[in-house]
Simulated assay, not measured.
Amino acid sequence: MNKYIYVGCLLFISACFGCESDKLDVLNYGTIEGQVLDGESYQPLSGVMISTTPASITLLTDAEGRFSIPKVKEGDIEVNLKRKDYIANSLKVAVYENEVTNMNFLIFKDYNETGNISIYDPVPGNGAVDQHLAITLKWNVEGKKAGVELLYSIYLFESNSTVQNLLSEDVILKEVVTDNLKPNTTYYWYVVAKHEGNRVANSPTWTFKTGEK
């Protein structure tokens, strides 16, 4: 009898641990939807190859440049964009459980004379929370050829907004101050680099969330 009781206890404990393991394995998912536009004309681009890192799905934009990626694991996801005669780009976005991250993406024609420019290292860091309502946005740049001078335009917009506001244009320094932000609001922002009036690169789209004050 004691033998059977002992075996039954082991089975019960094993089942409990199995339940805990199942709970730990639960993943949360969201959706990324958007439209890819030409960085110069702002016209929709069809046939842009879309993939993600970590990998989830690979697809092409439709005739209106739109795409939808369902069931994306919650967290920071890189959206990779490729199209012939355009500079390949990877944009990092934040995905939240049961929410749709909806935004436009810009890609630019390949201007080899400027170098392979990369805009990175945002301040505040991507996904930062509890930010002040007045902050300084900063970034770094690498890969431009010697003697190439860049000017920067910075776009800032609220989560799920269809309007991308131009925060500042033709900035020489790699930083810009913004204030009058709304409390408890998620913002997206990105930087466009220009050389002699031509758009030559854009940053990933970064996000941060403000605090109470």
Results as ranks from 00 to 15, higher is better:
Ala201Asp: 03
Trp139Leu: 09
Leu27Asn: 12
Gln164Ile: 06
Lys182Ala: 15
Leu27Tyr: 12
Phe208Ile: 02
Lys109Ile: 00
Gly147Leu: 08
Leu151Trp: 01
Gln35Pro: 02
Thr101Gly: 05
Ala193Leu: 07
Leu45Trp: 02
Phe208Glu: 03
Met103Lys: 11
Leu60Asn: 14
Asn184Ala: 07
Ile119Ser: 09
Val148His: 05
Phe17Gly: 10
Leu166Thr: 09
Lys182Ser: 14
Phe12Tyr: 13
Asn116Arg: 12
Ile172Pro: 00
Asn180Ile: 04
Tyr152Asp: 07
Glu97Val: 00
Ala201Gly: 06
Thr61Pro: 02
Val148Pro: 00
Ala193Glu: 03
Lys144Cys: 06
Ser168Cys: 08
Asp22Met: 13
Ser153Met: 02
Ser56Met: 05
Val129Met: 13
Glu78Ile: 04
Val95Pro: 09
Tyr86Asp: 10
Ile13Glu: 07
Lys92Pro: 02
Val100Lys: 10
Thr210Asp: 10
Gly39Trp: 04
Gly47Asn: 14
Ser46Lys: 14
Leu106Asn: 06
Asn102Gly: 04
Val163Tyr: 12
Thr178Pro: 05
Asn104His: 08
Ile154Gln: 00
Tyr4Ile: 14
Ile32Val: 15
Asp38His: 06
Thr210Trp: 07
Leu10Met: 15
Val93Trp: 05
Phe105Glu: 06
Lys73Asn: 02
Thr162Ile: 08
Met49His: 09
Lys92Ser: 13
Leu151Tyr: 09
Glu64Pro: 00
Asn184Leu: 11
Glu78Ala: 13
Ser153Thr: 12
Ala15Arg: 08
